[in-house]
Design a protein around this nucleic acid. Structure first.
Length: 172
DNA sequence: GATGTCGACGTGG
DNA sequence: CCACGTCGACATC
C-alpha cells in the first residue's frame, strides 16, 4: 500500500519567456526551473490525486511568476516550502525576499544582515542553492560595487531579469 | 592609485 | 580535501 501520499507535483508554467516547471510539496511551492533545463516529460501526468490546494497554488504561482518576469512586485505569491535547506540557507533566502523590486544588495550585505558578516562566500553558495529562482529574487544579489557577479542558472537570465526592473549592473 | 594574494564562512562533490 | 555566483584587508609597486 501507500502509507503516505507522495505529495510532490510538477506542473509547467507557460510564459512569454518559455516553459517553467514548478514543483509543489505539501507545504507549498518548493521548486522552480528555468525553461529548457528540464525534461518536459517530467511534469506530473494529469488525473490521479491532484490536491485542490496544488491547483490553487499553481494559479497563484503562475500569476506571481508573470509579474516577477515583468519586474513588477508580486502580489499574492503561493506559500513557499523552504523546509529543504539548512538554517543558514533559509536565513539567506528570507533576506533576499526582503529586497524590493528594482533594488539590489550585495553578497556582503546579505551576509551582514543575517549576522555572519564574513560568511560572504557561503551566501553565494546559498544563493546558488535557492530552489525558487525569480520568485525568491536571487538575481537581485550582486557582487560588491554593483558588479553582476555570477549566476548558476545562467548569467543571461540574471541580466534579463535585472534589466526589466530597471537595474543595470556593471559587467565584469 | 593600481594590482596581486590571502584568509574567512557554509555546503556539496 | 577542494571549489564555489565573494569581500575586505594588506602588501607592493
Amino acid at each position: 500500500m501507500k502509507p503516505n501520499l507522495q505529495l510532490h507535483f510538477e506542473l509547467p508554467i507557460v510564459t512569454a519567456d518559455g516553459e517553467f516547471l514548478a514543483s509543489y510539496s505539501a507545504q507549498g511551492l518548493c521548486g522552480l526551473n528555468f525553461p529548457k533545463t528540464f525534461n518536459s516529460s517530467k511534469a506530473t501526468p494529469g488525473g490521479e490525486a491532484m490536491p485542490v490546494d496544488v491547483l490553487a497554488w499553481h494559479v497563484l504561482a503562475t500569476k506571481a511568476l508573470e509579474l516577477a518576469l515583468k519586474g513588477r512586485p508580486v502580489k499574492n505569491p503561493p506559500p513557499f516550502d523552504l523546509s529543504v535547506g539548512t538554517d543558514f540557507q533559509r536565513k539567506v533566502w528570507a533576506a533576499m525576499l526582503a529586497i524590493a523590486p528594482g533594488r539590489t544588495q550585495s553578497y556582503g550585505e546579505i551576509a551582514k544582515s543575517i549576522g555572519r558578516p564574513k560568511a560572504v562566500r557561503a551566501v553565494g553558495g546559498a544563493c546558488g542553492a535557492n530552489p525558487i529562482p525569480v520568485l525568491v529574487p536571487c538575481h537581485r544579489v550582486l557582487a560588491a560595487n554593483s558588479r553582476i557577479g555570477g549566476f548558476s542558472s545562467g548569467l543571461p537570465w540574471k541580466r534579463k531579469l535585472l534589466a526589466r526592473e530597471g537595474v543595470t549592473p556593471v559587467e565584469v
